[in-house]
Amino acid sequence: MNTSRTHRAAVIGGSAGGLEALGALVVALGEGCPLVLVAVLHVHRTSSVALVAQSLSARGSIVVSEARDKEQARPGQLYLAPPDYHLLIERDGGLALSVDAKVRWARPSIDVLFESAARAFGKELIGVILSGANDDGSDGMAAIKRFGGLTLAQDPASALHAMMPLSAIERGVVERVAPIEGIAAILRARSGATEVER
C-alpha cells in the first residue's frame, strides 16, 4: 500500500474540554504528523498559553508553542493562539495576530482562524472541532468545506462538552465524526505519515 500526502495543514478548535481533547490528540498522534498544526482554544485572557504549550509538548513528540506574529508555520509543529488575540494564517503560511473585536464573544476565535486557513490552504486543509460548550467554529468549518477542505468533528459522545461538535454537525458541514484516536489516524494518513486509511 502507498502512503499518500493529500493535505498540508490542520486547524483545530476547542473550548470547554478542548484542552483535554487536544492533549489526547497530541498523545494519539504518537511519532508525529507532518502537517502544519494550528489550534485555537478558548482560554481566559490572563492564562498562560506558553505553559499549556510546554505541558502539551511534554506529552508527545510534537513541538507545541505559542504562535508568534509573522512566524512561518512549520509542518510537524503545533501552534496555539495567544490569549486575547485572534490568530490567522496568511496565504504564504505565515502566522498573523490581530486584536480585532471579539467574534461571538471569543478572542481568539475559532471561526477567524478557520476562515483564514481555508483561504490559505484550500483543499489541502483539514478542520477539526473538539469539545466545547458554544458554537464557535461552525462558520469556520463551513468555509473549510466550501474551499474543498476536509472537516472532522470529535464524536460528541466522547467530548466533555458536546455542543461545539454537535453545532457543526447539525450545520451539515462535518464530513467525518470520530473519537480522538480516529481523528489522529485520519490526520496521520492524510499527512502521508501512515498508510492510506481503508
Binding site: L88, R91, A96, S98, V112, E115, S116, R119
Partner: peptide
C-alpha cells in the same frame, strides 16, 4: 498590510 486580516475585514 497583513493580508489575512485585511481580507477578513
Amino acid at each position: 498590510y497583513a493580508r489575512a486580516t485585511v481580507e477578513r475585514r
